[in-house]
């Protein structure tokens, strides 16, 4: 019978090897998308918002490899720039959620007592609303727009990070090394940054990479129903919506952004799975 920790480590190791190529592929793909977006932005051959009604709904050609949309705009340019928009705003929302969630979780888990109870009640309040509802309500109140959509996502997402960090800190701060750090006169802030922060990095990274796919989907789907990116901004969800009336005659106009969303979300999930296998395994060896 293998000890539990050894078995865990072994399975963790084999899994991470199995998923290694996926992670590399995923990272490459993300880089490729970002590079392509940057390239198109810097060396714009086509203005992504310039309408040309005489050249609308064209098939693929040397000038327009993916053809043009219902307003005569180059689809490839809009697709690549839209990738930058969608992924960029998703990362922005995620980053803001981390910036709010990590410190609050650290403080609640470390301080305990009434600070923690207050935090948990607030978190419960935020968790009571599904993200789509918050986004729709916020758009109704503040007006539709990508900024308000990002705000809505941040309002919903920070809670899960704060709770994750809190639970890790709750268990770690009971250990002897934190007691010793206290008897050695380390300030609370120093204990949190030096001793506790390294413990949550892996967990947060895993949750974030699993979340990014969901956020991309959320931004795209809410843009699709008109609550996110506003025309003429190129954004995948909005592009899907724009090409809906031409589905019969030019279905590929919906297929391109659809495929783009699916592949980026898939890649993000693969990356998340890889990181989960990589970090979930306890490195600590039992005595």
């Amino acid at each position: 019978m293998m000890p539990k920790s050894a078995a865990l480590r072994l399975s963790g190791a084999s899994k991470s090897n199995k998923h290694g190529w996926q992670a590399i592929l995923a990272a490459l793909f993300v880089l490729l998308v970002l590079a392509a977006s940057a390239y198109t932005f810097l060396y714009l051959k086509h203005d992504p918002t310039l309408t040309d009604l005489r050249g609308r709904l064209q098939g693929s050609s040397a000038l327009h490899p993916f053809g043009t949309d219902h307003l005569g705009r180059d689809v490839l340019t809009r697709l690549l720039l839209g990738g930058g928009q969608t992924i960029g705003y998703s990362l922005l929302a995620l980053g803001a959620a981390l910036v709010i969630g990590i410190p609050l979780g650290l403080i609640a888990g470390y301080r305990r007592g009434w600070v923690d109870r207050l935090f948990m009640r607030i978190a419960d309040g935020f968790l009571a609303f599904p993200d789509t509802i918050v986004a729709i309500v916020l758009s109704g109140l503040l007006g539709a727009g990508i900024g308000n959509l990002v705000l809505a996502i941040v309002l919903v997402k920070w809670v899960s990070y704060a709770r994750l960090v809190r639970s890790t800190v709750l268990s770690e701060s009971q250990k002897d090394y934190i007691r010793i750090a206290r008897t050695n006169g380390l300030s609370d802030a120093r204990i949190m940054t030096k001793h506790l922060l390294p413990h949550i990095a892996g967990h947060v990274l895993v949750l974030a990479s699993l979340d990014i796919g969901k956020i991309i989907l959320l931004i795209s789907s809410l843009s699709y129903i008109g609550l996110g990116a506003q025309p003429p901004t190129p954004e995948w969800g909005a592009m899907l919506n724009d090409s809906r009336p031409y589905f019969q005659s030019r279905p590929e106009l919906m297929v391109y952004p659809g495929l783009a969303i699916v592949s980026v979300v898939l890649i993000a999930n693969m990356l998340g799975d890889y990181l989960r296998d990589r970090f979930d395994v306890k490195k600590e060896v039992q005595p």
Partner: peptide
Amino acid sequence: IVFQNPTAALNPKLRIADSLID
């Protein structure tokens, strides 16, 4: 103080030198 269980008394995420310098 020196505790019973050295595994719990050392932060697993810190290098030995970083624990020693505290």
